[in-house]
């Protein structure tokens, strides 16, 4: 995930300290992806090194204020306007496990599918419960949290559908009959 572009997009709204960036990032993405402050400062260091941000002052407590540069603004604009690359998706452990189960002696593929499906349903139930705790007309951070929960629900559902599909394909293949 691009912490770099996320932080840069926040800097595009105005000068910030590192801890402000961390706080704002978490609040505005529904608290779903916590970042540690070390990660924030490492990223800020790289942004400065690459000429996308700069240090513009130091307060008495030693906290540094960062400002986006024109090159940084251009970089943010590009981030908003271009899709996130999907050419090389993250390795998905469930897919890998199912694929290997097919050819691993002594492993019951259907049992593997069922185990994965049970876990996904459990996660879906948890996301859904979390969703019911958000008010009907969410604002600000609540809306962000709701959208991010929706994303997790849709992703989990897609995974569950894929597992169902695997099972049906497997049944069709082993029975040798077209459905």
């Amino acid at each position: 995930m691009s912490i770099r572009h996320s932080l840069l997009s926040l800097l595009a709204e105005g000068d910030r300290h590192g801890y402000q960036l961390r706080q704002e990032f978490e609040a505005r993405t529904g608290g779903t992806w916590p970042v540690n402050i070390g990660q924030v400062y490492t990223t800020l260091g790289r942004l400065c090194r690459d000429g996308l941000a700069e240090e513009v002052g130091k307060q008495d407590d030693g906290s540094v204020t960062y400002r986006i540069t024109p090159a940084g603004k251009a970089e943010v604009d590009t981030w908003w306007s271009r899709p996130v690359p999907r050419a090389a998706p993250d390795r998905d452990e469930t897919s890998i496990k199912v694929a290997l189960a097919l050819s691993s002696p002594g492993v019951d593929v259907l049992a593997v599918l069922e185990t994965e499906r049970e876990e996904i349903l459990r996660a879906l139930q948890a996301y859904t419960r979390a969703k019911t705790r958000i008010p009907d007309h969410p604002t600000g951070g609540e809306l962000a949290r709701l959208l991010v929960l929706d994303q997790q629900i849709f992703t989990a559902e897609a995974q569950a559908r894929w597992l169902d599909h695997c099972e049906q394909r497997l049944a069709a293949t082993t029975q040798g009959s077209a459905r």
């Binding site: 459990r122 879906l124 139930q125 859904t128 559902e157 559908r161």
Partner: peptide, 22 residues
């Protein structure tokens, strides 16, 4: 699955058998 997740329990069936309950 998305709508089943609103339930307290989810029972999964295959070929007339219960294969799992969440």
């Amino acid at each position: 699955a998305q709508h089943a997740a609103w339930a307290d329990r989810v029972v999964r069936l295959r070929d007339g058998f219960v294969v799992g309950t969440t």
